[in-house]
Design a protein around this nucleic acid. Structure first.
Lengths: 243, 243
DNA sequence: CGACGAGTTGATACTAATCAACCCTTGTGG
DNA sequence: CCACAAGGGTTGATTAGTATCAACTCGTCG
């Protein structure tokens, strides 16, 4: 299932689309880090594997001593409120950074949805390294801005879309990640539960089920099992009609 | 009204709370830039004044050649969808950066809500400068991460709060900005319309009015005029009960 | 095989969107 | 200086979408 970490160190890749530079290439959205930068970054990091789905990687309110780079697997970041409500603020895929803090305290919790491999950077050492390595720091700026754009996009979706369209958008997002979507069969394998999706889209698990039903009755997708969906991506895009 | 720009150059200040460094001071949340850094940054920038409220500063879809630092005034960033719906993704106050792009195209529009003074940076020159000035680039990382946290916080609010609580949170946020909130009289002067607030909170202007009515009937605030509110900040905080 | 969590379905209640009408303020031109 | 227009703000009536609660099924794992 996970060839990257089967043996040796997985590659250090940071997934992001640039803000201020046009990318005319069709390539995958990974930032170009030089080999030496990768090696030096790798020396700063520990590799940690979370063998089982459901592992808690970090918790909101804890002292934030590390920043995490996901090498393999899927992670969700969530915040639990006084009321007990939980809001999932994002799902992280290989090449994503997580472990956001405010004044050295984690603001969210992070949980492995699948077995995961991560690079863990001590923030102190990392900050010092970035100050000495402008081009690597530049990659981190790009990544942060990329995440900011994603969050703003999600704000639009939460503010203006009904539940079926939120779900459709979410499924398309998931279909962008190779390990979980097979373009040949158009099959998406969801690593998260209905409750997770609901807590991400600001709704309830029941509404997710019903929204799936609505999309299915419009022939935009077909439920093979609860967690595997056959998507008609082009039709879904037309249905969403973003922008 | 605007003493900073009445004469000479307004100060370059970037407003942000750090992520991985504890700030034990009680000071205002402005990043520490050295005087020489400020001077050199200032040389990169043009100062532009938008004399009238409602000025369009930039538009989504345009070529993004500049990044903006707000020196004085209030700006809103919004995205208009195919459907004609508008989502405001953020309000910017002095010390904020705006002009977010993706592959050199602005993703949002930005409009002055009051007369404004901005620093305008050519992105090419700025990027080159940041690569040569690690500590300034570091400030930009911190600012980007700060904005990311704000967006995630807004996601939680949109996902889990009903309209009155969204509004209460928004009013508290506004009260954090000195030019528009007088702590002595607890009076907030709103620079934006009900429609703007509604498009920010993912609702309608009518619902904003009704939510104001609900908060007023709970004695959390008092409407002096449509745009000036007397806030009971402590009670509002208790009402919101965030986290 | 039993148990538990995930997923689904149905009935009901409620929040907020929508549409319409109206008031109030502001600014402009006769 | 006043009249009128235009946009912002408010209120009411109706409707639509979705939250909530309850019951039940399905799938998986010990």
């Amino acid at each position: 299932m996970n060839q990257a970490s089967r043996k040796g160190r997985p590659d250090i890749r940071i997934r992001a689309i640039k803000a201020w530079t046009p990318e005319h290439s069709q390539e995958s959205p990974h930032l170009a880090l030089s080999t030496t930068d990768k090696v030096e970054l790798g020396r700063l990091a520990e590799i940690i594997e979370y063998k089982t789905a459901g592992s808690q990687i970090l918790s909101q309110g804890q002292k934030a001593s590390f920043l995490y780079l996901l090498a393999d697997g899927v992670v969700q970041a969530s915040r639990t409120l006084n009321s007990g409500d939980r809001q999932i603020v994002g799902f992280y895929w290989p090449g994503d950074l997580f472990g956001l803090a405010e004044e050295s305290i984690y603001v969210n919790s992070a949980e492995a949805l699948t077995p995961c491999t991560v690079y863990r950077f001590a923030t102190q050492k990392l900050e010092a390294f970035l100050l000495e390595n402008s081009n690597v720091q530049h990659s981190f700026v790009i990544k942060a801005v990329h995440n900011l754009r994603s969050a703003q996009r999600q704000l639009i979706i939460m503010g203006r879309f009904d539940i079926p369209r939120r779900l459709a958008t979410f499924l398309l997002d998931c279909s962008g990640h190779e390990h979980y979507f097979d373009p040949a069969t158009h099959t998406l394998t969801l690593p998260m539960t209905r409750y997770d999706i609901a807590d991400y889209l600001g709704t309830s698990a029941e509404s997710i089920t019903r929204a799936l039903g609505q999309l299915e009755s419009k022939h935009l997708l077909h439920r093979l099992t609860a967690r595997t969906l056959e998507l008609k991506t082009a039709e879904i895009k037309a249905y969403i009609d973003f922008e």
